[in-house]
């Protein structure tokens, strides 16, 4: 224990004097960017897929779309995120001769991946909304998509908000895999500080604390959001 003080000193030296904090900030920025934009893309894709999945299936087009969606979800839920990331970065994009920064690739892959998970969550959310809500909308002459957007999805999102918050937290934690394609995230930033200071105890401890603070902060935000959305439930 006696040399913990020394270790902290070494850490602070590399973190502040040698500019390690800059990489940590960049790493934090990338981690948040990947998780937040990934989540937004995921919600959009997930909502579209969930909508296709609850469509009546007696016409041909919904059947075909449903098949595509089933395959999509099976693929992204059936393979590890690292594999998807590696396949995108080292196989798919080079084959298409597209050159993208690794953070951008990570954002896209995270979006596609969480889209698959969120579609299942969202489908449950949509099915939990009283079918009478759709009938009420269609009966006054709103189209299917207008009723979906204005009535069903807002209620579905409210129902699944806690689960969606968990998905966001999962995404934050999973961003540590982006180092596989050379993107700088929190893990990479602290790893470099460790390498530069020949000392890993304090950097990894600080990293863990940052992750925990992030997650607690997000959980708090979700709770606040839930409470403000619950006001339409209060009965007299």
């Amino acid at each position: 224990m006696g040399n913990l003080g020394l270790k902290i000193e070494r850490f602070i030296e590399v973190f502040i004097d040698n500019g390690g904090y800059k990489e940590v900030l960049t790493g934090l920025e990338n981690t948040l960017k990947i998780a937040v934009i990934g989540l937004i893309i995921g919600i959009v894709i997930g909502t579209l897929i969930a909508t296709v999945r609850v469509l009546p299936k007696y016409k041909v087009l919904p059947k075909i779309l449903n098949g595509i969606c089933t395959f999509y979800v099976a693929f992204f839920r059936g393979t590890p995120m690292v594999v998807q990331l590696l396949l995108s970065y080292y196989v798919a994009l080079p084959l298409m001769e597209i050159n993208l920064p690794s953070v951008t690739v990570a954002i896209i892959v995270f979006g596609l991946n969480s889209g698959a998970y969120i579609s299942e969550i969202m489908r449950g959310g949509i099915l939990s909304v009283d079918p009478g809500q759709m009938e009420g909308g269609r009966a006054v002459g709103l189209s299917f998509s207008k009723t979906m957007l204005s009535i069903i999805i807002p209620q579905a999102v409210k129902n699944i908000l806690p689960t969606l918050g968990n998905e966001f937290i999962t995404l934050i934690k999973e961003t540590s895999v982006v180092s596989f394609v050379g993107a700088l995230d929190l893990y990479v930033a602290f790893n470099r500080i460790g390498s530069n200071s020949y000392e890993f105890m304090v950097p990894y401890l600080v990293m863990a604390i940052i992750y925990i603070v992030l997650v607690l902060f997000i959980s708090g935000l979700v709770k606040l959001l839930e409470r403000s959305l619950r006001k339409s439930d209060r009965s007299c």
Partner: peptide
Amino acid sequence: FQHFNLFNN
């Protein structure tokens, strides 16, 4: 409708 089907949100 019997069950009103007002938009809850």
